[in-house]
Amino acid sequence: MRSGTLDYVVKRVAFALVTIFIVLTFNFVLFRLLPGSAVTDLSRVPNASPALREALAREFGLASSKWDQYLAYLDQLFHGNLGVSYVNQQPVWDNLRTDVANTVPMVALGTVVAVIAGITSGLVSAWRRRTPADYLLTNSAIAFYSFPTQWLGLMLIVLFGSYLPTTGMTTPFQIGGSFWQQAGDELQHMILPSLTIALTLYGQYTLVVRSAVLETLGEDYVLTARAKGVRTRRLLTRHVLRNAMLPIVTLMGLSFGYIVGGALLVETVFTWPGIGLAVYQAVLQRDYPMLQGAFLLLTISVVVFNLLADLLYARLDPRVSG
């Protein structure tokens, strides 16, 4: 019956692949257009001879033509090689792997908490619209949504700094301890940065869910469901939220896509050694391979999660794929 489904999936996947390729190329061009290179930085020693510059340029593969560089870039990419960091001479892929492993749990925790809390509070404030509960939830959501992230992070440090760790991922000089002790320590460090992410996203989700639910509550089929004798709980989940989820799924695709990208501001405020902090430092040091790798990862993650959201949307809404 859903004969259009396969067609739809193939189209979305093809679209995602094309998007990734375009961004790949764009990344390459963008970074070659920027002024300065690793050579400019590394050769800024006194008396750097043209010979030294040339040697450095050759070492980093910057001597050949742009087109050759592009082909080499693609070729290496397809073999899983993202190049070598200009700064620490390590393969970019190895650097990124550690950073991503640090980022994902922290950002994922914040995002998941925000999505669950935001959907709940958006649903409640829409159902209880124009009551004190609605005003409280909506106004606090607007506040959290509009606070600058770094400011919110600093406020949390001021408020909770004496109870919870505020920098890094582990307590320095605490070596040893069982696996569980270490995990507990890391979790403690995670609380404040995760909370910062959760609060900002929470505001956004509450507002989006509230307006989606309000719109759905006015639909004829919701009145029909009430007439059928459906109880409030079932009404809100099976009828209202099930329909209001459609726009929210798209937003969730975006949020989850950014989990890998990390949160640059939050990681900088809390010196969380994740990919956001790595990008920040790479920018300062003009570490192009590192930046390219990070952006590539972010692109793929955003595109993949959007694709997942699209596919989920099609599963949830029979009108999409007929």
Partner: peptide, 23 residues
């Protein structure tokens, strides 16, 4: 609620949209 649908049922004005699109 106890009387709804078992005693009194309704066909709505504009029941073109009386069905949820996703079920």
């Amino acid at each position: 609620r106890a009387h709804r649908w078992t005693e009194t049922a309704m066909v709505f004005q504009g029941s073109m949209n009386a069905f949820s699109p996703v079920k």
